[in-house]
Design a protein around this nucleic acid. Sequence first.
DNA 1: GTTGACTCTATAGTTACTATAGACTTTATA
DNA 2: TATAAAGTCTATAGTAACTATAGAGTCAAC
Lengths: 135, 135
Amino acid sequence: MKIGELAKLTDCSVQTIRYYEKEQLMKSPERSEGNFRLYNKSSLKQLMFIKQCRTLDLTLSEIRQLLELQSSPSIQCNSVNKMIDSHIQQVEQRIKELNSLKEQLNYLSNTCSNNGTIEQCGILQKLTSDVAKNV
Amino acid sequence: MKIGELAKLTDCSVQTIRYYEKEQLMKSPERSEGNFRLYNKSSLKQLMFIKQCRTLDLTLSEIRQLLELQSSPSIQCNSVNKMIDSHIQQVEQRIKELNSLKEQLNYLSNTCSNNGTIEQCGILQKLTSDVAKNV
DNA sequence: GTTGACTCTATAGTTACTATAGACTTTATA
DNA sequence: TATAAAGTCTATAGTAACTATAGAGTCAAC
Ligand SMILES: [Zn+2]
Ligand SMILES: [Zn+2]
Ligand SMILES: [Zn+2]
Ligand SMILES: [Zn+2]
C-alpha cells in the first residue's frame, strides 16, 4: 500500500509517517518504480505500535529504545519497567501541578464580577498584587 | 540595575528576559553608555507579573493581551474572564486525560514480573497486542 | 594592564510535528 | 489521447517558549 492508505488506516498524517522514517522509528520501506513508498502489514504493525506508545505519552526517543530492546529478546526487561514507572511518576506529578493550578485559576475567576471595567477587574488586581507579594 | 540582578531577583534566566523583550512582553529598557540594559522597579513588577501569569500556564500571547488590556482601564473586563475560564476548562480536560493515562500505565506496569526477559515482558506484549486489537 | 565576571548580538537547537513550495507520478475523465 | 486532478516526492521553514553557544565588547578589581 502507498503512504496515503497507511495514513488513513492508522489515522496518522502522511507527513508524520515520513517524519518517523527520518527519525528512524520506522524502517525505510521499499519504493515503487515511480519512487513511491510501499508499505505492508508489518509496517502497519510497526506504526500502530508507535501510535500506541505515543498515546501513552512516551517520547520518540523512548519508543526508539523500546524498539531496540525488542530486537534483543533475551536480555532482561527491567529497563522497560523503569521507563514505564518513571512515566507514571511524571504523570502523577503533573496531575498534582494541574490540580493546584486549577485551584488558583478558580480562585482568580471568583474575584471577577464580570460586569465591571478592566480597572476594577479582580483578576487583574489579583495578578498584580500577587506580584507585589512575591517581591 | 543590570539584567543579571533582575534575573536573580525574579529567578528568570538572563536569556529569558531578553527573549521577553524581543517578544514585546517587556518594554525595551534604557541602556547604559556601554549598551547594557538598565532596569528599575517598574521593570521588576512587569517581569513578576509575567512570571505569575506563566505559573498559571497562560501563553505569552495571552499575557500580551492582558498587558494590552491593562492599558485601557475603562473598557469591559469580560474578555479577561473568558480567558481564565477557558483555561480552567483546558486544565480540567488535561487532568482527565492524565488520569486515564495513569490508569493505562499502571495496568501496563502490573503486567511485568520485572525479572524476566524482553521476550517475556508483559509490557511489551501488551503494547504489541493492543496494536493488533486496534487494527 | 590584565584577569575575570558580566553583558551584548546573532544564531542554532530543543520536541513532535505541521505546512508549505515546486516538481514528479499516477489515475480519472472528456 | 490529452489533460486535469489527486497523490506523492524532497527540502525547507514554522510552531512555543525557551536554552545554549560563539565571538565580541564592557567593567571592576588587583
Ligand atoms: Zn518518559
Ligand atoms: Zn474581571
Ligand atoms: Zn490559554
Ligand atoms: Zn517486563
